[in-house]
């Protein structure tokens, strides 16, 4: 891993930990950047410290205290003391504690505009800068800047908490988080940017590590892998695609995950993953398991009735009939 990759990974963790400690996203973001900047300056000269996570956290806390001392308005509102006390308690392990799940739920909070949730997730958890987020969503940088400022103002002033919802709240809250991650994937897909799709998959992997027993998290990861596996061939329609270009490793992983996502129940992402697994595993278009795909679309239509699902369902029924006729002919 190069330095940049290390920081992309650590950045989200550090930010989550600091947000949890300070209860202030702005301050946490500022000192996260400060700490990473310091690391980029010192580590190439002094060498990487034994415990990089602890080093970053201690540095960030020191920067926070500096900022609070300089900024009276901040200091008045925030518990300076809390930060001071916190400094005396460096993390025990080699790496930072993983408190990113809280941040996932904050970024995708239902009180925030739906179109901003993916953007905030990219920024806070994938470590994207605002211009990078703007490019991902194909909007001018100033527009994205305003949207992020407004969202952060709401988080702060309406006091949207940094917490993982209780188990009974999860069915209501988790779909928002999954939708935010999936929106990053679909944006990337529409813009033919594999880096964004990769990033969405990476975020889903992190999420799955944090919520290993939530089948829809597994389903979402499976779905994205099974679609992304066809990336090299996607310029053509599915029936014309050169299937030797498909990513076999990704299909194997995605199919196994799809199967796991559909044990003991099912949700919309798991079902869509299963549909894509059937496409990906078919040797050619004609021998696709159409009856199974139609059945899955019916299940999906029951879960999320939508015109698109109904249309796809009809399309696949039609495809099956067409194949049937072709065989007869």
């Amino acid at each position: 891993m190069n330095v940049e990759q290390v920081f992309r990974e650590e950045r989200g963790r550090l930010l989550a930990t600091l947000v949890k400690r300070f209860g202030d996203l702005d301050l946490a973001e500022e000192v996260t950047s400060d700490a990473i900047e310091a690391a980029l300056r010192h580590w190439p000269v002094d060498g990487v410290p034994d415990r990089p996570g602890a080093w970053l956290l201690t540095t960030a806390r020191r920067k926070a205290v500096d900022r609070l001392r300089r900024d009276q308005a901040y200091a008045a509102r925030l518990a300076l003391l809390q930060v001071e006390v916190d400094r005396a308690d460096p993390p025990a392990g080699d790496s930072l504690p993983d408190e990113r799940l809280e941040l996932f739920f904050t970024c995708a909070h239902p009180a925030l505009p739906a179109e901003d949730r993916g953007a905030l997730t990219l920024r806070c958890l994938a470590g994207f800068t605002t211009p990078e987020v703007a490019r991902a969503y194909l909007v001018p940088v100033t527009t994205m800047q305003q949207r992020i400022v407004r969202a952060k103002k709401k988080i702060k002033e309406a006091r949207i908490p940094f917490r993982v919802p209780d188990p009974h709240e999860l069915p209501e809250r988790l779909p928002g988080v999954l939708q935010a991650v999936y929106s990053i994937f679909t944006e990337g897909y529409a813009a033919r940017r594999t880096d964004l799709a990769d990033e969405a998959i990476r975020l889903a992997r992190i999420l799955r590590g944090l919520l290993p027993h939530e089948r829809e998290v597994t389903g979402l990861l499976a779905l994205m892998l099974l679609i992304h596996a066809r990336r090299e061939a996607r310029a053509e329609l599915l029936e014309d695609q050169d299937r030797t270009l498909w990513d076999r490793d990704m299909i194997t992983e995605g199919s196994a995950l799809a199967e796991r996502a559909l044990t003991c129940g099912h949700g919309p992402y798991g079902v869509q993953a299963a549909i894509n697994a059937l496409h990906d595993e078919a040797p050619d278009f004609a021998s696709t398991d159409w009856p199974q795909i139609v059945a899955l679309y019916d299940v999906l239509d029951g879960l999320v009735p939508s015109p698109v699902v109904a249309l796809n369902s009809r399309r696949h029924r039609h495809a099956r009939r067409r194949r049937g006729r072709a065989r007869v002919a």
């Binding site: 309406a158 006091r159 908490p161």
Partner: peptide
């Protein structure tokens, strides 16, 4: 209440 979630 402590936060927006509680208010909601």
């Amino acid at each position: 209440v402590p936060d927006l979630d509680a208010a909601l």
